[in-house]
Amino acid sequence: MIEVYIDGATKGNPGPSGAGIFIKGIANPVLLSIPLGVMSNHEAEYQALLFALKYCLSHNYKVVSFRTDSQLVDRAIEKQFAKNKAYAPLLDEALQLIAQFDLFFMKWIPSSQNKVADELARKALQGGEK
């Protein structure tokens, strides 16, 4: 199974943001740092999820296990509900993408287990490219 680690980072809240995506379980692991522009830290977490979902679908990775250190995103996916209405459109987009997978899991992990994605997200804050 392909494992996808995601993280968002923000300087300030809101502030310049970035997404980090680390994909393993394939021949060549994927490391992505994506500058996102100005947004809140929670929006950056959702954007990391959306970029990773789209990347996996575009590469025909249909059986995936996502890992995030964002409890907000993990709970929203699990319950299919965003408490904050501002995040509802992001959640809806994510759920539509998730429906296209053959098998999808999301698991919350502590930040200490998400270091690669965190470093990639922080790199994106410094102008890292995908």
Score class of each variant (00 low, 15 high):
residue 122 R to H: 06
residue 58 S to K: 06
residue 7 D to H: 07
residue 101 F to V: 04
residue 75 R to P: 00
residue 101 F to Q: 05
residue 108 W to G: 09
residue 73 V to A: 06
residue 27 A to G: 08
residue 105 F to I: 14
residue 106 M to C: 06
residue 125 L to D: 07
residue 37 G to A: 07
residue 57 L to S: 12
residue 32 L to D: 02
residue 94 A to W: 08
residue 68 T to I: 01
residue 16 P to G: 07
residue 82 A to R: 09
residue 20 G to I: 08
residue 105 F to Y: 14
residue 124 A to L: 06
residue 82 A to I: 07
residue 124 A to Y: 12
residue 14 P to S: 02
residue 101 F to C: 05
residue 57 L to I: 09
residue 22 F to Y: 07
residue 111 S to I: 00
residue 66 F to L: 01
residue 49 L to E: 05
residue 80 Q to F: 11
residue 69 D to Q: 07
residue 86 A to I: 13
residue 95 L to E: 11
residue 48 A to K: 07
residue 12 G to P: 05
residue 12 G to K: 03
residue 95 L to D: 11
residue 85 K to F: 07
residue 73 V to L: 03
residue 29 P to W: 15
residue 94 A to I: 13
residue 58 S to H: 03
residue 30 V to G: 08
residue 43 E to F: 03
residue 36 L to M: 04
residue 25 G to V: 07
residue 13 N to E: 04
residue 24 K to I: 15
residue 45 E to V: 03
residue 36 L to C: 04
residue 34 I to T: 12
residue 8 G to Y: 06
residue 113 Q to C: 05
residue 125 L to W: 10
residue 99 A to F: 08
residue 33 S to N: 13
residue 105 F to A: 14
residue 15 G to F: 01
residue 44 A to G: 05
residue 15 G to A: 01
residue 56 C to K: 00
residue 70 S to N: 09
residue 6 I to P: 01
residue 111 S to M: 01
residue 87 Y to M: 15
residue 51 F to D: 09
residue 87 Y to H: 14
residue 46 Y to C: 10
residue 32 L to T: 05
residue 72 L to T: 04
residue 70 S to D: 01
residue 50 L to T: 05
residue 124 A to I: 10
residue 78 E to I: 10
residue 24 K to A: 13
residue 13 N to W: 04
residue 85 K to Q: 10
residue 107 K to N: 11
